[in-house]
Amino acid sequence: MAQMAEDTRERWLLGLVTLLFFVFLIVPIVVVVMVSFTSATYVSFPIEGVSLRWFYRIVEYEPFANSLWVTLKVAFMSTVIAVMVGVPAALYLVRAKTPATEFLMALLLSPLSMPMIVLGLALLFYFSAIGLGISLMSLIVAHTVVGLPYVVRTVAGVYRSAPPDLEESAVILGATRWQIIRYVVLPQIRPGIFSGAMFSMLVSIDNLPVSFFFGSPSTSTLPVVMLSYLEHQFDPSIAAISTVQMSIALIGLVFIERVYGLKHLGAPA
């Protein structure tokens, strides 16, 4: 009996800590969403009235709209390349059993463990040296390097749990290599490709430390423009554009949850 009482007390105590933690986690985000609907000309909380004026402001303020377009273009293009390059690599690494596979997998995932500011600086130096300089193309390539590990990791995770028996049966039944990949492997790993691509895009959209080095009127992404805006002025338009950006990410997250399940994402890195 005493033990049960102890368990209940532990549950309530830990539950309280957990609740407080999530309040801490959520409040700053909720505050920004609320500020984005303020009618005041300055940032204040609690807000004084409700209006959509700051959402109009971000439509009017050209750098925001332009950079949002750049951001989406870069996120999409870099993800397409990351998928084309990363999916075959993940397929090979899961089924191949050579001593090098472990090393190759570590290599493909290594951009994840790199301080992003280091990567950004390195790529900028390099692109300037080889004459590509600051361009949309170099920004897309930089984001591809960042997004590739996400694609490889999710696709490898899904493919690893798919038994090789189906492929073997297909061989025995006389299917060609490409038929097997097209009709046996691809349908099984589709959720992995989809979620990996989603992650790659979301990470690209919010990337600041790499994009920062590629700032120019035609290549500044949304976070870069937001940062330089914040460094000079402090008004609710940042809240409004943040709310828009978060909505995009949340829709992506709901998609991932539907297709792949967030439970599989338990262990990061």
Binding site: P28, I29, V35, V43, L202, D206, F234, S242, Q245
Partner: peptide, 30 residues
Amino acid sequence: NLIIFLLIAPLLTPIIMRTFGWQVLLARRG
């Protein structure tokens, strides 16, 4: 499942947004 969602969702909110939230909360008259 709710806890997992609540842990992962903030990871995908823009980094500038979270920083801005703290700026509002911690302001002199915040």
